[in-house]
Design a protein around this nucleic acid. Structure first.
Length: 302
DNA sequence: GCCCAGGTGAAGC
DNA sequence: GCTTCACATGGG
């Protein structure tokens, strides 16, 4: 096996834009390539590696489609497994989508964002990012996360001529930071929550790798012991970092989606919505949730 | 100025 | 139990 600066994945179906911009991860920046091809690339940092991703997709036949994802790194890579794991390229998306309920809302959402995948992210980065997410718009979450990385992350190698890039700071690093330094990143009242989480993880009171082996209800309960982490944030971490397919985060958008699409505009409380989600959306309910979330946001009137 | 944002915890019924 | 409110900040 030889190392390379670039690789590609050939897949049946992969919508990189929906995947990277549907509010799962907050460190991807789109860049227009050139005027001839209207394609977009994204640059970001996964772990300690800078990476640039591109995607071209086409229709092979009436029903079949294909996608090629290209990736460039800043340093030669021997084994690209970390990237295929992050992007979940091995997942059989057809099997996931065919498990969705055959109802109008789900079919519409599925058609609208076909190719959207759930990423598999680092638990600490995911937890910390979603602690910062509460009552913030996705653009602002991105800004806060970036400030945190610039201030406290480690510089990572970038290709010549590229802007400096930084890793997401470890829990140990953030555990040593003062609350006022965090507030300087404009995270407001979330600062003490992030700090407490960092200290709990750094000091070993919360073992994020151990959560993987636990029943998801127990893992959720452990996450929710942290101040500032409730059901929604815990479910985001279960779904986006641990791959718990039944985790179903309910935020304002999903609440809106469920009430408009399934409850005839009547607002239902969270308990009722979770009960509905558990019984209605099947074994990949978390995936269904992400499709509903992204579909609702695509059609927002801004 | 006003309302809202991938919420949560505490206080009030 | 459930509903209301404060929390910090910025976009539209």
């Amino acid at each position: 096996m030889s190392s390379s600066l670039a690789t590609s994945f050939h897949l049946r179906d992969y919508d990189l834009a929906s995947t990277l911009e549907s509010g799962q991860a907050f460190r991807w920046f789109p860049e227009k390539n050139n005027d001839e091809d209207l394609s977009t690339s994204w640059t970001g940092v996964i772990g300690a590696r800078w990476v640039r991703l591109g995607c071209s997709s086409g229709r092979v036949s009436r029903r079949e489609s294909a996608a090629t994802i290209t990736a460039e790194a800043a340093e030669p890579v021997l084994d690209w497994h970390w990237l295929s794991e992050y992007l979940q390229t091995e997942v059989d998306l057809d099997r996931v989508l065919s498990s969705f309920p055959i109802d109008q809302p789900m079919q519409t959402a599925m058609t609208a964002c076909r190719g959207l995948r759930l990423l598999r992210q680092d638990p600490w980065e995911c937890l910390a990012s979603f602690i910062l997410s509460s009552t913030k718009q996705i653009v602002q979450i991105r800004q806060i996360v970036e400030r945190v990385c610039t201030c406290f992350g480690e510089p990572v190698m970038v290709p010549p001529g590229r802007a400096p890039a930084f890793s997401f700071p470890s829990a140990a690093r953030l555990a040593d930071v003062r609350e006022t330094e965090l507030r300087a990143c404009k995270m407001g009242f979330r600062a003490p929550y992030l700090l407490t989480a960092a200290r709990n993880v750094a000091e070993g009171h919360l073992d994020l790798s151990a959560l993987r082996q636990m029943p998801s209800v127990d893992a959720r309960a452990r996450l929710m012991e942290l101040p500032g982490v409730g059901r929604k944030i815990a479910d985001c971490v279960l779904l986006f970092a641990y791959g718990v397919q039944t985790a179903f985060p309910v935020d304002v958008w999903v609440m809106k989606a469920l009430s408009e699409l399934y409850f005839r505009g009547k607002r239902a409380n969270l308990k009722r919505l979770h009960l509905f989600a558990e019984t209605h959306f099947g074994p990949h309910a978390g995936y269904a949730q992400q499709y509903l979330f992204h579909y609702m946001r695509m059609n927002r009137g801004t």
